[in-house]
């Protein structure tokens, strides 16, 4: 993987929101790469900055949000410095995005077909009839039955799962190199979620695109990602490949999170619980952001912020007390696979 050039490289990204109540450091120094054709998972709880990271890449922040520092290098260009016209060409064409709530992303007054065709006509400069053909093709590809009929329907006429498929069709109609998926299955029922995840994996293979999957669900991450970034309070705390992350988490937060989920495949007597509450974005703690909830926290954690350090090849962790976690790991009984 290291031999390849990354498609997207995010360096020290800082996105702050300047609200009436103060500065919210939603994303505060985040680094990661996405390689062509791979899936990077970004996982974290509410308010950790995972969605703001994705909106920053596409520069879709509202007027209070600003990228105050860092670079977002996409195919050699720094998206932070690009003017709005150039950015518009990249959006939808090179980088596309799908959201949790398709009803918000789809305009209710246009048919599904119109909305897919709009992007195709805009970016591929083809005639209307041609665009319609591509749109129908796209709908078929995402598994919508009777695409010739559905293309003329309005978003509200589709079910939740179908809408999500239509949004994927719209996002993929211009064959983007990178798809950013922000909690795309969170609002769906599990049987529909399984369909959509399967579809995304299939399309990724067919179209050879990279995916950034943003979710709070570690199960979805395990299912679809190649590499994972774990975020907490605007910071990346751990960054490595998916197998290592689940098998050998090095950050106390990742480790605790993995032990806090009720599992279908394992017997657990009692869930491991992380004490305290997710910190409020206006009042992030000093030092390591996790120290208020971390059982290994020391004086150093309270005062000094740990940097993201490569502790072994391709495994980055931001923690002062990695050894302490290793020593404590045996304590929590994680049951055997059935």
């Amino acid at each position: 993987m290291e031999s390849k050039q990354p498609l997207l490289k995010v360096n020290n990204l800082k996105t702050y929101f300047f609200t009436d109540d103060g500065v919210v450091k939603a994303v505060d120094g985040v680094n990661f790469e996405v390689y062509p054709g791979e899936t990077l998972g970004i996982v974290g709880e509410s308010g950790c900055g995972k969605s703001v990271t994705s909106l920053s890449i596409l520069r879709l922040l509202d007027e209070k949000g600003k990228i105050v520092d860092g670079e977002i290098i996409f195919e050699g260009k720094d998206l932070v410095k690009l003017d709005e016209n150039k950015m518009r060409e990249i959006r939808g064409n090179d980088i596309a995005m799908i959201f949790q709530e398709p009803m918000v992303a789809l305009n209710p007054v246009y048919t599904v077909g119109d909305q897919i065709m709009e992007a195709i006509i805009l970016h591929q400069k083809v005639h209307k009839d041609e665009a319609r053909k591509i749109a129908i093709d796209m709908l078929r590809k995402v598994g919508i039955p009777e695409p010739e009929k559905r293309v003329d329907e309005y978003p509200h006429e589709l079910s939740g799962g179908m809408r999500q498929r239509a949004m994927i069709a719209m996002a993929l109609s211009c064959h983007p190199k990178l798809l950013i998926a922000d909690e795309p299955t969170t609002a769906l029922d599990v049987t529909i979620q399984a369909q959509i995840l399967e579809l995304m994996k299939q399309l990724q293979k067919d179209l050879d695109m990279a995916i950034i999957m943003i979710t709070h669900d570690l199960g979805v991450i395990a299912e679809i990602s190649d590499r994972v970034a774990v975020m907490y309070a605007g910071k990346m705390v751990e960054y490595t490949d998916v197998k290592r992350l689940f098998k050998n988490p090095k950050h106390p937060y990742t480790w605790a999170l993995l032990n806090a989920i009720p599992r279908l495949d394992i017997e657990q007597e009692r869930l491991f619980s992380i004490p305290g509450v997710v910190p409020d974005a206006l009042h992030f703690p000093s030092g390591c952001k996790f120290h208020t909830r971390c059982e290994f926290a020391t004086e150093k954690c309270r005062n000094e912020e740990p940097g993201l350090i490569e502790i072994e090849d391709g495994h980055f962790v931001a923690c002062w007390n990695i050894e302490k976690l290793e020593a404590a790991k045996d304590r929590v009984e994680v049951g055997e696979n059935k």
């Binding site: 599990v190 049987t191 979620q193 399984a194 995840l197 669900d217 570690l218 199960g219 979805v220 991450i221 395990a222 299912e223 990602s225 998916v242 197998k243 689940f246 098998k247 993995l258 989920i261 599992r263 279908l264 495949d265 696979n337």
Partner: peptide, 14 residues
């Protein structure tokens, strides 16, 4: 059966 198999399990090697 379908419901159980649809739940993503946080274990990439399973």
């Amino acid at each position: 059966k379908a419901l159980m198999s649809a739940i993503p399990i946080p274990d990439p090697e399973l």
